[in-house]
Design a protein around this nucleic acid. Structure first.
Lengths: 152, 152
DNA sequence: GGTGGATATATTGTGCACAATATAGTTGTT
DNA sequence: AACAACTATATTGTGCACAATATATCCACC
């Protein structure tokens, strides 16, 4: 009489666990590169949003713009932006048109960081040993899952 | 004269961001199911490890066993196990053979939670709308990337 | 049998995530 | 004009993650 088993509860059979682990390991792989720029990984994501908005002439952006791009809520983003303001990467200013809104401006320091960041994605690609084609296929599958999960 | 662009820094071209987001959204999808069991997502992962060890008659396990399975360090796992002990899910006891080692035992409450958890993976599969075959393919690709990242 | 190095776990401090709630401002309706 | 409903951001509290460091124990070798 052996114990009954529940293979669907075995760690190796989970889909969630590799996603969770891969996310952590990727963040760890970025860490030394981002440390040289004085950024954490979530701060790097905010900078990606701001640099891209800058290219398109969309600055300043609202806090809401960032929360929607990154799918994070204000409870995460507000303190994140405060720390980044203290670090001199950006400015936060209440809109005079609508006092509810806080507008985010890129500082010169924040803007100039972009040129240093330009090599980061390629270096990461090398470290992870991802074949670019399969990486794109994986990315698209994940984006599809994200769309499904966002509805609930 | 337009601003120069750096497409490799655009959010939509990142591989890391979908992994990061998918991981968060999956955790959020688990949350209502796990809340009914009184577990957080990392606590659920610890329980998966313990239930599986229990099946194999490997209990008690060392803290190290859990950190290695989950690829987390003691700075994360020790307080996690303490909270789980307070919640009555497990016991922590110093080994008398080797006083450095802390042995983790499953409590009866923790063991009996397994039957309630057995339906969780299937429910998640439904919510994420994953085709099982493609899910397995994705999982294996992620595990391959994890192996590469673990070496550095 | 003492001591240097290795091992196992714990602690401290910082920065996310996120649920829940609060605050303040705006808009639409009557 | 008053006020209810809505919107944008902020705050509070809890629980991870993780780097860095500390503590305690064990083991090998002399």
């Amino acid at each position: 009489m052996t114990k009954d088993t529940a293979p669907q509860l075995h760690l190796d059979n989970q889909l969630c666990f590799p996603v969770y682990t891969l996310s952590r390991l990727i963040t760890q792989a970025y860490q030394p590169l981002l440390k040289a720029l004085g950024l954490t990984y979530p701060q790097y994501l905010v900078m990606l949003v701001l640099w891209e908005a800058d290219e398109k002439g969309e600055l300043p952006v609202q806090v809401r713009f960032i929360t929607e791009k990154l799918l994070l809520d204000t409870g995460t983003v507000t303190p994140l932006l405060k720390r980044m303001e203290e670090a001199g990467l950006l400015q936060r200013r209440r809109s005079s048109v609508d006092e509810r809104v806080v507008e985010i401006y890129l500082s010169e320091q924040g803007r100039s960081l972009r040129s240093q960041a330009e090599t980061v994605p390629f270096e990461l690609l090398c470290r992870t040993g991802v074949d670019p084609k399969r990486g794109i296929a994986m990315r698209d599958e994940m984006l599809a899952m994200i769309r499904v999960l966002q509805q609930s």
